[in-house]
Amino acid sequence: MKFTDTILGLLRRWYIVVPGLLIAASLAVGAWFAIPPDYNRSATQLLIPGDNSIPEGGNPYLFLGGLAPAADVLVRAVGSENVLNDVVEEHPGIDVEISRDTTTAGPIVLITVTASSDAAAEAVLAMLIDRTVTVLNEFQDVESIPDNNRMTVIPVTVDEQGEEQVRDRALAVAGVALVGTILTLLIASLVEGSSRRRREREPAVRGEHEPGAAPRSHKAGAAEAQATPGAPAQREDASASLPVDETLSEAQRPHADARR
């Protein structure tokens, strides 16, 4: 079937295509409002070396080069399963990602929180910021690091408002619309194909009932079929019933008379 024939067939079945597309669009809109959006908040924290690691009067931001390994350790500790489980228990459905910001060369910790509400994302982000400071101090307490030589962590950026994430909603809407459209076109194509096959059979049926061709019933054909094999037998019975004289030929009659 050509593409143009398919389009024309769908146009003929507009009473199926149009309502089907309207239903698919309605379901897609309903999916958009039924699926709530997610909210994303992030924060970055910077490790600062201790006072003894900086020359007197020096700029601490010029001595960040050796703190990248310490930032990796801090990220691993804060992002551990034990810490995250405590957060998830209080706020189920939260997605937390803690990593070192690879877009910069400095020892920067990146915290990203995704939640179903902006308030939950804000609360969890604040909790993790405080947790980073606590974990860093615990590490240095274990090693008995003097206060004047301790690393500190300071916030660099903290989102004041969550960013709405619509990716999941968009995927759901697109999926519902696609499935609805495919089902609509499939049903319309099936109906059109069935109608086409019925139209193709109609000329053959009309040819059998034209005025010049007398229809033969099944019973008449069967009667003829039964009568035909029995015809020779009937002729044999008729021959047998004739008199003997009638069955003899002209040449055989004088001999028959002489015997009589």
Rank of each mutant, 00 (worst) to 15 (best):
T102H: 09
L178E: 01
R150T: 04
T114A: 05
P107E: 09
T134N: 13
V166Y: 13
G175L: 13
L178V: 07
V87N: 00
D86C: 10
N137D: 15
G193L: 10
A188R: 00
Q165T: 08
T104D: 14
D72Q: 14
I98V: 14
R196C: 00
E81G: 11
Q140Y: 06
V78A: 09
G162N: 03
V142H: 07
E90I: 04
L62M: 11
V78D: 00
S99T: 14
E138R: 13
A170P: 07
T104S: 14
R169C: 02
V73S: 15
V133R: 07
V176G: 03
T184W: 03
V156H: 00
G93M: 09
D86A: 15
I94G: 01
R169V: 06
D130I: 05
V75K: 10
A77I: 14
L74G: 07
I145A: 06
D147E: 12
V191Q: 03
T114C: 04
R196S: 08
M127E: 13
V73L: 14
V109E: 03
I108F: 07
L74V: 09
N148W: 05
G93K: 00
V133G: 10
G180M: 06
I129C: 06
A177W: 03
I154T: 14
G175R: 10
G175F: 05
I145K: 00
I94A: 12
A120P: 02
A126T: 11
R167Y: 10
E97D: 11
A172I: 05
L190Y: 05
R100A: 08
E81S: 14
Q140E: 04
V96H: 01
T112A: 12
N82A: 13
A120D: 15
L171I: 10
L178K: 01
N82M: 10
E90Y: 01
P92M: 11
R131S: 12
G66M: 03
Q161C: 02
L74E: 04
G79T: 06
N85Y: 09
D159Q: 09
I111D: 05
S189T: 10
V96Q: 00
H91M: 07
A126N: 14
R167A: 12
N137M: 13
L110T: 01
L136K: 01
V173T: 13
S99A: 14
V75E: 02
V75F: 03
V176Q: 01
A70H: 13
E97A: 14
A126Q: 13
G162A: 06
R167K: 10
V156G: 11
M151I: 07
L178R: 03
V176A: 05
T114D: 03
V191D: 05
R76G: 15
E122A: 15
S194H: 11
V113E: 08
V75W: 03
A71F: 02
T103S: 15
D147S: 08
S195R: 14
V109F: 00
G162M: 01
Q161N: 09
G180W: 06
D72W: 07
L125T: 05
N82F: 08
D147F: 07
L190G: 10
I154W: 06
L183T: 08
G193I: 09
I98D: 01
E122T: 15
G106I: 03
T152S: 15
